[in-house]
Amino acid sequence: MKHNTRRHKTSVGYKIVLGAIYMFILAPQIIIVLVSVNAGQYLTFPPQGFSIKWFVEFAHSEVFLTTMRRSFILAACATTVSVALGIISAYSVVRFGGRFRKQLRLFMLSPRLFPAVITGVALLIFYYRVIGWGTTSYWGLLFAHVLVSFPYVFLAVSSQLYNFDLALEEAARTLGANKLRTLVKVTLPLNKAGIISGAVFAFVVSYTELPMTMLLAGRNLTTLPMQLYDYIRWSFDPTGAAVGIVNIFLALVAVWITEKLVGLETLRW
């Protein structure tokens, strides 16, 4: 790698390396997009032409549509519960945590510290042998999803709440607002960004969750990631890519919302 003596940041070699790594990161997503509009069955070089037939296939696929709908609804429900849990836990840890704030924070993030697969195993055994739900309960799956998504809401809300200027709440109090009014008129509106970006992340995490869901979802509870997983293992038909586009689109929307609301740079674990 060539370095000029002044600032090695601007050397050409460095730029090429960076570019290559960014391309590496983007590669599979780009391929999915290309494949989904590829005329041929297999992705070959040279490309075979443009076609939207795979999207048509997707639109006609009963299975994909059902599982997609199920995943959306599950993610929506899980996100709702996660947001509720995330907000009250963030508020209580930041405001009332006191000396135990660090430990409480760790406790709230603990579901993400364990491997998803193993949490899935633990929950499976738990559901079968302790609760008796087995893999047939929607609630079981829902709670599992809430478990792994609410830490994201907690993280986003608690970060913003931590930097919240308490003087704003005190000013509201001196103007006669009681605790409830202050919460509703001042605190919540000003922490909207954290709540929304946390919710967005929680939704995507639930929507794309696989290892845990695979273990816990019974036959009638197949989610989209599960369906797609099965599909791509046994067929190379690019319909799967058309389905994948939805995920990519969702991811871009989520990233865009987060950037607009809180700025991606502020994300810290």
């Binding site: 200027d165 003087a167 704003l168 005190e170 000013a171 509201a172 001196t174 000003l190």
Partner: peptide
């Protein structure tokens, strides 16, 4: 008596104007 029940006006050092 807590602040919200008192008849006071207060100006804070950083003004604490509600940004929203």
């Amino acid at each position: 008596v807590p602040a919200e029940k008192k008849d006071i006006g207060m100006v804070f050092q950083n003004y604490a104007l509600f940004p929203h």
